[in-house]
Amino acid sequence: MSVAKLRIYRGDAEGGQEVEYDVPIEEGMVVLDAIHFVQANYDGDIAVRWNCKAAKCGSCSAEINGMPKLTCKTRLDTLPLDKPITVHPLKTFPIMKDLVTDVSWNYEVRKKIPPFKYAKDTDWKMQQVDVERSQEFRKCIECYLCQDVCHVLRNHNKKNEFFGPRMMIKIAELEMHPLDIEDRKEMLREAAGVGYCNITKCCTEVCPEEIHITDNAIIPLKERVADTYFDPLQWVMKKIKGS
């Protein structure tokens, strides 16, 4: 039986290092299977977050050979097995232990986004083609791989100024809901910091749900903000009307 070498980061806030483990390869095996093998056979206390093991819950995010991925969805046979596979925790969030990071910032930010609001006389009729725009963003499994790879958060640590791609599609999902009447444009411009995104599309590339984060959410949101705050025609109209 062939063997994969896994170099798993082990440590906590104080520091740590890679530890190498040999794992026998089974057909179709994914990185999370290999980590479970290590847990059951070598180190029972190795920390990894996971739930469904079917790419539906977005819990098992890690950086595999330097790339942000779901460990449950990354098959060993898609990786070069002639050298060790490195598995590290997400870099953008503080480490708790081993592969587990503290992602609570995402939950705090999300609370700040005003929820869905509808008009009193809503008749709840919606066409499929109209709900599909929002539905694309509602596929999000909150794995935070997009947050991890976003350089505004990862390299510049602008967590106080930019909500990150996950929250951009959350806002887009609400803004594009056919019956929503809440206005989140000022939040987008100010607190959520949509202007920080400079459209490198790294988030779109790592999204396991293949959501077009940049093209379908962030760019349209930027346009809405620009239309409201920076459109010269609207600016002139406002001046004339005195509002």
Binding site: G44, D45, A47
Partner: peptide, 14 residues
């Protein structure tokens, strides 16, 4: 019987 500390320890949880 389990190894390690009480911090995020899946073996203990199990």
């Amino acid at each position: 019987k389990i190894e390690g500390s009480r911090m995020y320890n899946p073996g203990w949880h199990l």
